[in-house]
Design a protein around this nucleic acid. Structure first.
Lengths: 153, 153
DNA sequence: GCGATATAACGGAAAAATTCCCCTTTATGA
DNA sequence: TCATAAAGGGGAATTTTTCCGTTATATCGC
């Protein structure tokens, strides 16, 4: 689906604050509620907007620790990659997971309670996954920026 | 703020789908709308929930490319780190930014249109920031998982 | 244990937002 | 130019949120 200028502005607003009333968006974009409403329904129906979520501030939660770890597999065969994908999807501590170019490693963003919980996670759950050969962990000292926004060009 | 069991369940629901009607949440948690409503307002007021956003599916958008890059600075002094923080906040392509332990590098998640746009961004905007000494880029081949959920323990 | 006080839950009514309807306007193309 | 499709508009019905006053439950000092 190709996005016109109104789509881009509208999606930018919804990515910043999905609770903005439709009538406010409408007056801001010099339209009425109906066209805005129908565009939004279209995004939802086409899956462009996949969901609406509340975003928590980890610094306001007592004990939250963020770790990035790169995981290498013993095999780079497709079925090895895919079985890793599936296994990772069910681990709640793994908040994000990407297959990376270059070394064909996975990059994981992991959220745990504290260092001890990370050790349990890493040596227990993560190392136990099939084909895992190496885990390198780097700890987040400070979350400088975390936008949920995908910039539209 | 310490979270009781209801808080954790409620926050889990709001992190999954912030559009769930309060009355549905209420009946699911065996309560009425008022206590649910008041808990939610408390989270918002205390900043535990920082915002509500629509999440876009990048695969449904024509041309979106994700890159992780680690940026080293020439100086690790506090003011150098902070001026980098501030500069990064205004660059829309930088979707996330973390100060990492170990080498004291920054890890950036960058979203651009294509490889050419990344080159422009990296050599233009990013390298131009003060004190930047080294940029190492790794490209995302596949987004295996991207949850917005912070698991609560 | 008892009463006082604070915290949480309840139910209904008012306000606001969403949703749905039908109508009008503006493009598009044969 | 007329027919047709796509986009925008306005108002009413529905749903959801918000805001009361009230009741229940828990906590703490005595």
């Amino acid at each position: 689906m190709k996005l016109d200028d109104t789509d881009k502005k509208l999606l930018a607003i919804l990515q910043e604050d999905s609770k903005t009333p439709i009538k406010d968006i409408a007056s801001h974009l010099n339209l009425t509620k109906t066209p805005i409403y129908e565009r939004i329904k279209r995004y939802e129906q086409k899956g462009i907007i996949s969901k609406y979520v509340g975003v928590l501030d980890p610094s306001k939660l007592d004990t939250v620790m963020v770790v990035f770890c790169s995981v290498s597999l013993e095999s780079q065969k497709l079925d090895a990659l895919e079985s890793f994908d599936k296994a990772v999807a069910d681990i709640p501590e793994v908040v994000e997971c990407y297959l990376m170019g270059g070394a064909n490693d996975f990059l994981l963003k992991v959220v745990v309670k504290d260092l001890q919980a990370y050790h349990t996670f890493s040596s227990g759950k993560l190392a136990a996954l099939p084909n895992v050969s190496q885990i390198k962990s780097t700890f987040v000292l400070n979350e400088v920026k975390r936008a949920t926004v995908i910039p539209l060009f």
